[in-house]
């Protein structure tokens, strides 16, 4: 891994010194923890680091005007971040000439990759990024319970939500300028941090990621109340894959799962 990090630092320094990018989004070490950082000087590249604890999804910064305004830029990209980049590209949120990935993962460093090359790298080294087994086991365990028990479980969890929207801020897929939860004419989702408003928020937030969630886990990691948001995401991802073969973030241009259709889609639940 240390060789990979060295190569990644060297590439970041090279891109900055050549002026190929104006900004590199990466992670650096402070104390024992790794934090996102933005570097604009080649000399700062030495501070870059990466390991499995880097769960913040840097792609989430790309829609922010202050970051976007400094394109072209490079992003230190774990496989999940790479997938997020491709999802953003499919949804016309980022353009090929604006963003490059310094692709890095458990299997090593993949080099400086344009958006067009990410898919091939992912498919070669990380072809089936599925939720971790431990997570899937928890999903299965909860799914096996009765509806009443599940309702009770989620009621307890959702009641904790303070509506700080840290999950939304951490998620690269949440880039709407006006989130549905902020709409007030009509107000579909109550903004009070309790009851039905919380239920609607959590369920709709998850559903808006259907066919788009790349499983990075940034939302759950960001939640100060410790809500198990990845249970919702994993369940949806699993359903979307099983029913529609959805694997978001492997293609540069993909049709959205919700917003396209096939005559062969399962309709057995419709009587």
């Amino acid at each position: 891994m240390s060789g990979a990090i060295g190569a990644m630092r060297a590439d970041a320094a090279k891109l900055l010194s050549e002026g190929a990018v104006k900004l590199v989004l990466g992670y650096c070490v402070r104390g024992n923890e790794r934090y996102p950082c933005f570097i604009s000087e080649a000399a700062q590249a030495e501070a870059l680091d990466f390991d499995q604890s880097c769960r913040q999804n840097l792609a989430a910064y790309l829609r922010k005007p202050e970051v976007r305004g400094r394109a072209p830029l490079a992003v230190v990209s774990s496989p999940a971040v790479c997938r997020s980049l491709l999802v953003l590209s499919s949804e016309s949120q980022i353009r090929e000439n604006e963003v490059r990935a310094l692709a890095i993962g458990p299997k090593g460093y993949g080099g400086i990759l344009g958006l067009g090359a990410l898919g091939a790298w992912l498919k070669a080294d990380y072809p089936d990024l599925v939720p971790e087994q431990a997570l899937l086991d928890r999903v299965a365990e909860l799914s096996a319970k009765t509806a009443q028990e599940r309702a009770k479980f989620w009621m307890k969890e959702f009641e904790k939500c303070t509506r700080c929207y840290a999950c939304r801020a951490a998620c690269p897929g949440c880039y709407c300028e006006r989130c549905i939860v902020e709409k007030n004419m009509p107000q579909w989702i109550s903004s009070a941090a309790a009851g039905h408003g919380n239920y609607a928020w959590e369920v709709i937030r998850a559903f808006h990621q259907a066919g788009r969630c790349t499983g990075c886990g940034a939302c759950e990691a960001a939640c100060p109340q410790g809500l198990p948001l990845m249970l919702l995401n994993a369940r949806l991802s699993q359903d979307a894959f099983e029913e529609f073969g959805s694997r978001p973030g492997y293609e540069l241009e993909a049709k959205p799962l919700i917003g396209s259709w096939s005559a062969e889609d399962d309709g057995s639940f419709i009587r």
């Binding site: 799914s143 509806a147 259907a210 369940r235 359903d239 419709i270």
Partner: peptide
């Protein structure tokens, strides 16, 4: 068809969060 795809996922999400098939019907 758009609706069918939407509901096939949404109803499962509802069921997972406690609103099961006794509450949402499609025909």
């Amino acid at each position: 068809y758009h609706a069918r795809r939407r509901w096939s996922l949404f109803r499962k999400l509802l069921a997972f969060t406690g609103i099961d098939e006794n509450r949402v019907f499609f025909s």
